[in-house]
Design a protein around this nucleic acid. Structure first.
Length: 556
RNA sequence: GCCCCAGUAGCUCAGUGGAUAGAGCAGAGGUUUCCUAAACCUUGAGCGGGGGUUCGAUUCCCUCCUGGGGUACCA
């Protein structure tokens, strides 16, 4: 589907060019970007550009006069009804009623694809999200990451990118060692052995459960093995358990990944060494106090970074370097988007430095930092920590609040703003969630369509739909592709929630003012036309909900 | 100290340098012989403070204040 503002943009540039060639405007460099927006006050028109005010300085002319000249040179634009100049120099565009109503048919022709656009067709983009350490159940902190990443991936897919969804399993490194040791202790305790959970281990009760599960399944077998060997085997079981649970929790949230990527796998087949070799060759590694460092300061980083510790083990940054080399070079993604919590914000500069060290364009790696969710329970702040075991799991909240409400709530704020999640309030009030307002509109339409099952309306005449609520509804429906583009451009999927809400609002208003089904034979034509309208509206609502990963219920 | 994010209505939050800054919730009042009242309609109040850039600033820059996060050979 064509985006109207893009068409207008093109037409405006053409008009400027033509006016200059005709010497109606003095010569100055044509702007590359022209703002085309919806005026706040809809009575002014459907689109507007303040372009002429910007050009006034360069052209040494009154903006109003420039606007008049531009309008004279504007090519014929088929979907427009009028083009007006307004002080102090706006150009306002109004869509034609017949074009507007004709779009209903266009939407009806693409029930599964409405909203799709072709921003960068075929560009391969990876979205990596959640990637929580596999040392325990997913908690509410990861829920925001999950929803943000998942909807962002859908938005980009809808915008025409070739998307891969990935979960990075941090199954290597020192935190895993602490996890394994904790699990070993819990396993031994389950068999009445004396064992202590290490100080920096994981003290949550879920570790007791996994320990018991392993004891029940494998008996004393691991106690008889040498400690290192037992740790390795128990660790593998624990890891499998935790990853399986994460997979199940995310599936309940409606998230399916294309790939679960193991950190450990980076250390197989010489991959890691190859990447280190490149850094070495590029001259960005040096030894200091027994450790190997990356010269990040030479690449715009804030300070140099340890890659391999003085005990010879690679740090997590080392994995990240190898991992991103794998993404860009071995798997060939054009762009990679990582979704991280604000507690990782300090890593961004070193990641950019790493890209440069690998001779990769840093702009190909985009890192979305979302502000942390602060959890409250009964008005009290809850601090989350897997190490101390004080966690609110994603699962427990999801079970109470439900998928759609959870997604809507977590999605409806921009990533940059902190959000407060009062668990008790969310459970209590989940039926007040705006998502139900949107779904209710869909269910209402389904109800109308059920009753109208036998009404043949393929010949409905959409040009009859000229009343204010009808036109307003169509205008809202037509915004979906624009919203997809904006959300994709800004990597800001929260716009979808507001859009869906406004669309539902336009429907509810229409529903009050315009009766669809009527037994009066005189209203027959209007009924047929409105049935088309509500079917197209149903498609639009369902598509918006689908992109957000929410259900579009037939009944409520 | 330094770095990142935020400060918009009583509360939770939208707001791509443009025209009169918007929703929801909470408060007040109203709407159902008729397609789902999980709906609709009416109603008050606001851009943290101070500078600057601009024809125009909630939006960009500087500074101060407040809140959150970061600042490890943890991840």
């Amino acid at each position: 589907m064509k985006l109207l503002d893009v068409e207008l943009h093109k037409a405006l540039i053409e008009a400027l060019d033509s006016a200059q060639k005709a010497k109606d405007l003095p010569s100055f460099e044509l702007p590359k970007e022209v703002t085309v927006e919806h005026p706040k006050d809809q009575s002014l028109g459907d689109f507007a550009t303040p372009m002429c005010m910007k050009l006034a300085g360069e052209a040494h002319m009154n903006p109003l006069r420039i606007a008049e000249i531009v309008v004279e040179h504007l090519p014929k634009i088929p979907f427009l009804d009028s083009v007006e100049v307004a002080p102090p120099g706006f150009i306002n565009f109004r869509l034609s009623e017949s074009w507007l109503t004709s779009q209903i048919e266009a939407i009806l022709d693409m029930p599964d694809d409405y909203g799709k656009i072709d921003m960068e067709e075929g560009q391969r983009v990876q979205v990596e999200y959640v990637s929580a350490n596999p040392t325990g159940p997913l908690h509410m902190g990861s829920a925001r990451n999950a929803v943000l990443g998942d909807v962002l991936a859908s938005v980009l897919e809808t915008a025409g990118y070739d998307i891969q969804r990935e979960y990075y399993v941090n199954d290597a490194g020192s935190r895993m060692r602490a996890f394994y040791e904790t699990l070993y202790a819990r396993y031994a305790q389950a068999l009445d052995q004396d064992a202590a959970v290490p100080e920096d281990g994981y003290h949550g009760p879920y570790m007791v459960d996994i320990g018991e599960e392993i004891a029940a399944g494998h008996g004393k077998r691991f106690l008889e093995l040498p400690r290192e060997k037992a740790l390795k085997e128990i660790g593998a079981l624990g890891l499998e358990h935790v990853v399986k649970e994460a997979r199940e929790d995310l599936a309940l949230l409606g998230i399916e990944y294309d790939r679960w990527f193991s950190e450990q796998s980076l250390y197989e087949n010489g991959q890691f060494e190859r990447v280190m070799g490149i850094l070495q060759k590029n001259g960005y590694l040096y030894e200091h106090e027994g450790a190997t460092w990356l010269k990040a300061t030479a690449l715009g980083g804030e300070k140099d970074e340890v890659v391999i510790r003085s005990d010879g083990t690679p740090g997590y940054f080392a994995s990240d370097i190898a991992y991103h080399y794998n993404k860009f070079v071995e798997r060939g993604f054009d762009r990679v988007i990582d979704v991280w919590g604000a507690d990782h914000q300090g890593h961004v500069p070193r990641m950019k430095a790493m890209m440069k060290a690998l001779s990769l364009d840093p702009s190909r790696l985009e890192i979305i930092i979302y502000q942390l969710v602060t959890l409250k329970r009964g008005g009290e702040m809850v601090r989350l920590s897997k190490r101390t075991g004080d966690i609110v799991t994603l699962r427990e909240v999801l079970d109470e609040v439900g998928n759609d409400a959870m997604r809507y709530f977590l999605l409806s704020r921009s990533a940059d703003s902190q959000m407060e999640f009062d668990i008790d309030l969310a459970k209590e009030r989940s039926q007040d969630n705006p998502v139900y307002y949107v779904q209710y509109a869909h269910a209402r339409i389904c109800s109308i369509l059920r009753r109208a099952r036998d009404v043949e309306h393929t010949d409905g005449d959409v040009t009859l739909l000229t009343s204010e609520p009808e036109q307003a509804l169509i205008r809202q429906m037509l915004r979906l592709p624009e919203v997809v583009r904006m959300a994709a451009d800004l990597l800001a999927p929260h716009h979808l929630t507001y859009y869906a809400y406004e669309l539902a609002g336009a429907f509810h208003t229409f529903y009050r003012d315009c009766r669809v089904l009527s037994s009066d034979p005189e209203d027959k034509e209007m009924t047929k036309a409105r049935l088309k309208l509500v079917r197209a509206c149903k498609i639009t609502l369902a598509r918006a909900l689908e992109i957000m990963g929410m259900n579009a219920p037939e009944r409520m």
